[in-house]
Amino acid sequence: MESKFTEAAHQKLSEDGHESECDKIAHLLDLMIDGEASTEEQSYFNTHIEECVPCFESHQKQKLLKGLVSGHLKRVIVPESLALSIKARIQETV
């Protein structure tokens, strides 16, 4: 509930036309969790989330989401016959 309140306040900032820092941070979220942010972007980001709770929380959520896929999505098992049939078909290809 508390976080909803601050989130609303935080979005209001951007409506006022301040290209708020929080907006910039929102654009960096994916870059950060995907390891695609530059060194400057990283330090800008990290400095900001140290003092901004909504952005800190968004970052946590985004990391969590990525972790759900990378850590919990089950891999399917490759049928044993597949490698064999690929090899066989390649061998008969001229």
Binding site: L82, R89, I90, T93
Partner: peptide
Amino acid sequence: NDLVQETYLKAY
């Protein structure tokens, strides 16, 4: 299965 086989044949 089909898609992977097709992919390898193309790659070949």
